Amino acid sequence: MSELLELKKRLAKILIKKSYKEGDFTLSSGQKSNYYFDCRQSSLNAEGSWLIGKIFNILLKDYSIKGVGGMTMGADPLVSATTVISHEMNKALDGLLVRKEAKGHGTKQFVEGLVNFSEGDQVAMLEDVITTGGSVLKACKRIEDVGLKIAVIAIILDREQGGREILEKEGYKVISIFTRNELVELGK
């Protein structure tokens, strides 16, 4: 069995146990769903965090990127895990965090971590789950507004509800660790 598949199976078990709930939910997009995925419960778990960082590094190894970024607060543990593991793997990736609102004092910026980047650098955007893609699309625009380029958007769970297609229509390449069916199957 490949290393990636083994890591995905381990992560799926943690995600199913800690982050995946079935029932009647309203998502941040306003859509109704018969399941909810709260990735922070797993990404803030020591093993879950390590697995997410390791898997993202494996998936991103063939991209010429300087770093990874994402919308705070959901992507904070994803960015941290991925940057730390990248250092262990001798392919250091720096991190960026995109604020929902501009900082109210000091530099009043939307993006944190820019000191580690130069204009034109390519980055990967990280996201825990996409439904419509609205949150990560906003983060991508803010990253582009500061002069960086988006090489790829990497997602833990693609709900397969149109988000990937919206992001691809905007010109972004999208990869995911799991779809819902893959997650449930590997998490058994």
Rank of each mutant, 00 (worst) to 15 (best):
L5I: 13
L7S: 13
L11Q: 02
A12D: 08
A12C: 04
K13S: 09
I16N: 02
G23K: 03
D24F: 14
L27H: 02
S29N: 08
R40K: 15
A46R: 12
S49A: 11
S49T: 08
W50M: 07
G53T: 10
D62S: 12
Y63W: 12
K66N: 01
G69H: 00
T72V: 00
D76N: 04
A81F: 02
S86T: 00
S86K: 07
G95H: 05
G95M: 14
L96N: 06
L96W: 08
L97G: 07
E101T: 10
H105T: 11
T107Q: 07
K108R: 15
F110L: 14
V111Y: 10
E112K: 00
G113K: 08
F117S: 06
V129A: 13
I130G: 06
I130F: 01
S135E: 04
K138C: 01
A139F: 00
A139D: 00
K141T: 04
K141L: 09
I143L: 05
V146M: 06
I150C: 05
I153A: 09
I156Y: 00
D158I: 01
E168P: 00
G171H: 08
Y172V: 02
K173N: 09
V174W: 02
I175N: 03
S176Y: 06
F178G: 09
F178S: 12
N181C: 00
G187K: 10
K188R: 14
